[in-house]
Simulated assay, not measured.
Amino acid sequence: MAVAFTTGTAKATGKSERAIRSAGELLKQIEPAHGANQNIGGGDSPKVQTRKSAAIAAGMSPDQAKQALRVANVPRGFDHSRII
């Protein structure tokens, strides 16, 4: 029974890792808005989709969004065993 639990945990971990990477890849598609302040101006300015607003709309916390972007920046197939 313990083997089935371990296997299920490994599968769940793999799924969550792929989900985090996918979220980060989607956030990377949105150009970073360096210093863009959407609250400046007195008229009807167009609302720009930012990484932060997309993450909030997806129900992610700021920390989850940052972590997803970090994971997405690691190349696929990176050998983690080389890290000490």
Rank of each mutant, 00 (worst) to 15 (best):
2 A>G: 09
4 A>D: 10
4 A>H: 05
5 F>C: 01
6 T>P: 00
9 T>A: 12
13 T>S: 13
15 K>W: 09
16 S>E: 15
16 S>Y: 12
16 S>K: 14
18 R>T: 08
18 R>C: 04
20 I>V: 15
20 I>S: 00
22 S>H: 02
22 S>D: 11
23 A>G: 03
26 L>Y: 06
28 K>Q: 13
29 Q>A: 14
30 I>Q: 11
30 I>F: 01
31 E>D: 04
32 P>R: 09
33 A>D: 06
34 H>M: 12
36 A>S: 04
39 N>T: 03
40 I>G: 00
40 I>M: 14
40 I>T: 09
41 G>W: 09
41 G>Y: 11
42 G>R: 10
43 G>E: 07
46 P>Y: 02
47 K>I: 12
48 V>F: 02
49 Q>E: 09
49 Q>L: 13
50 T>F: 03
50 T>Y: 03
50 T>P: 01
52 K>H: 06
52 K>D: 13
53 S>I: 06
53 S>D: 04
53 S>M: 07
54 A>Q: 04
57 A>H: 01
57 A>Y: 02
58 A>Y: 03
58 A>F: 08
58 A>W: 14
58 A>C: 13
62 P>G: 08
62 P>C: 10
64 Q>F: 05
65 A>H: 11
69 L>S: 05
70 R>W: 03
72 A>P: 02
72 A>C: 07
72 A>Q: 04
74 V>W: 04
74 V>I: 15
74 V>H: 00
77 G>T: 09
